[in-house]
Simulated scan of single mutants.
Amino acid sequence: MAISDPHPFPFQETDELLIEPRFEELRASEPLCPVRLAHGEPAWLVTRYEDVKTVLGDARFSRAEATARDEPRTRYHRGLPGNILAFDPPEHTRLRRVVAKAFTARRVEELRARARTISDDLVDAMTGRGAPADLVADFALPLPVTVICELLGVPVEDRTRFRLWSDALLSTTRFTPEEVERYADELSDYMAALVAERRKEPSDDLLGVMVAARDEQDRLSEEELVAMGVSVLVAGHETTASQIPNFVYTLFEHPAELARLRADPDLVPQAVEELMRFVPLGSGGVARYALEDVELSGGVVRAGEPVVASNASANRDTAVYSCPERLDLTRKEASHVGFGHGPHHCLGAQLARMELQVALRTLLGRLPGLRPAGTGEDFVWKTGAGVKGLQKMLVTWDPS
């Protein structure tokens, strides 16, 4: 392999929601950088927007090849067998098609009213208890968890259990390898039990549809069925649950943009897109393997070599965005890659967008003067996790 003298990556643990400071330098001088993640073999890191889109979207780069290799990764574990992220088209297309109809723009719009009701109920509970409130525990987590549970057909009362399992699956160092393995097994067993229930009592929720696809149309193996259920459950709430407080925190840090959004709530959809571009959700990407020699900005990736694409860096590329370090809620430049790109573009992107829009409208509309509580310990950040975000966020608001 040509990957020699790799740099440890992530290069440093950036505080809070700060982006890796070396990305700007790499985009300019070393767009194809040799790196070594916490686990697995060395890889190339690409940081430019166009290179990132090529690695994520070009069929010459494979996710399936990673299953036979010591894949570069930030986490100890490699996920559950049968995970949709481990496949290339056409196998990936077959799996994705089973659940894609649940996340179309039309279907998501049908869920918007329910998301508004859930949001209003959560805010009612917050105002009933009085300030300060923990925006994470009292709003950001229960909103997407309730929506995805109802969509998939998972008992909402089990959310404390699968939240722990989800944290373990996304852990980098927060849990020991033994704990990760145990919790992953528990989550798989939990999903398998729900599948067994759907076989006894068929339903029209998403899990019931998936079971029917397995049993009647033979479109899923049993392993794929369980893994798909786990993936939808975890991914269906994790991004939104993390980004709601991340977005609110970022708006607190940019008071002029917060004032602009409060003055014009119709900016919310565009604000969500700009915040998805601006806020770095994770530090390391998922490796793809080159199936043949591919020329990128910084050189040639040889067949068999893994590449990690930094979405966060791509979203700050000065070749694509003017003043990318500035939060501009009216920005209408190139589409961001916050939800990925290509075949593995986030399946639930439309759902996440809708929930984030509803969350911002509800919080800014119903909690006038929303701001940090001012206790001195308002913000507690996640540690040892693959997804950046707040573990606790204490807020207050003006009395109505």
Rank of each mutant, 00 (worst) to 15 (best):
R302F: 01
R277V: 11
F278P: 03
A259S: 15
P372H: 04
A309W: 06
V286S: 14
F339N: 06
V301I: 11
R262W: 03
P324D: 09
A319W: 00
D266F: 02
A334W: 06
A256C: 00
V279M: 02
P265T: 04
G284V: 15
S313D: 08
P324N: 02
E253W: 03
R260N: 08
E325G: 14
L329F: 12
A309H: 07
R353L: 05
E253D: 14
A271G: 12
M354G: 05
C323R: 15
A334V: 06
L329K: 11
Q350W: 01
G284S: 15
S297N: 13
R288D: 10
A303V: 04
L258M: 14
P306D: 09
E355L: 12
P324K: 05
E273A: 11
P280V: 06
V307D: 04
E377L: 05
L360T: 02
P324V: 09
F252Q: 03
S310F: 09
G284F: 01
K332W: 04
E257M: 07
K382P: 02
L364K: 07
G348H: 01
R277E: 06
G285P: 12
Y289P: 04
L370V: 06
E355Q: 15
Y321T: 05
A349Y: 00
A349D: 05
A312Q: 08
